[in-house]
């Protein structure tokens, strides 16, 4: 970091895009470690209850998981493209991409809703009598499944809300070709949500 940059920063102390991005990344690390703690718990229990985990994971529908993976990957694509569009000056294209991202986020949540309600229908939910009859390893598996995908879904919802704000900010011109850091930071958040799912998918749906 050289002196000229610092001097420039001081002249516009209320507008430091690089600083904003550093702050966003640092925040993403806390999210990463937050999920990391749960991945650590997962790792320990998978180590302890290997066979039970493999057995319990058969209850999950790989197809739904796969669809949701593709939905999130595609939403990441549209998110990234919306920034490029904005920076190239095509505001309407950018808005379209943001809208698509919001659409995919909703699709993910709807999918998740059906998946969870199917589980609940089978009596597999925390504290249910059905669950308590299972071996301990499977109880823990479902405990982790609900908490980890639940917290991930919560992050999708937060991301969704942010994206709705971004849609209106871009529309009103508050976020524009020159000042796009807010959209970029929202994008960073959205991609992180995607990355978490990239790991959740094989760990819960694909283990055998």
């Amino acid at each position: 970091m050289n002196q000229t940059v610092d001097a420039a920063v001081h002249e516009h102390v209320h507008r430091d895009d690089v600083g904003a991005k550093i702050g966003m990344w640092l925040f993403l690390f806390t999210e990463l470690i937050l999920f990391g703690g749960m991945f650590l718990v997962y790792a320990v229990y998978r180590f302890t209850y290997r066979d039970f985990f493999a057995l319990a994971s058969k209850e999950l529908d790989v197809f739904i998981g796969l669809i949701n993976t593709l939905v999130l990957l595609t939403s990441s694509l549209t998110m990234a493209m919306s920034i490029t569009a904005l920076r190239r000056g095509s505001k309407n294209l950018s808005l379209t991409f943001i809208f698509l991202t919001i659409f995919f986020a909703l699709l993910f949540l709807v999918n998740k809703y059906f998946e969870w309600s199917a589980k609940f229908h089978h009596g597999l939910f925390p504290g249910s009598n059905e669950l308590l009859t299972l071996p301990r390893g499977e109880i823990v598996y479902f405990g982790l499944y609900y908490v980890m995908t639940g917290l991930h879904a919560l992050h999708v919802i937060i991301g969704l809300i942010i994206l709705v704000f971004m849609f209106f900010y871009v529309k009103s011109g508050k976020v524009n070709q020159d000042y796009y850091i807010m959209l970029e930071n929202s994008g960073l958040y959205w991609h992180l949500v995607d990355i978490i799912w990239i790991f959740l998918f094989p760990l819960f749906y694909l283990i055998h």
Binding site: M79, G187, L188, H191, I198, F199, F201, P202, I207
Partner: peptide, 21 residues
């Protein structure tokens, strides 16, 4: 299988971070 699954996931995450992010 877990090594391969996590390996592929790591490559995917890396791609997202390097290009998308």
């Amino acid at each position: 299988s877990i090594v391969i699954a996590l390996g592929i996931a790591s490559i995917k995450a890396l791609l997202v971070m390097l290009i998308f992010m």
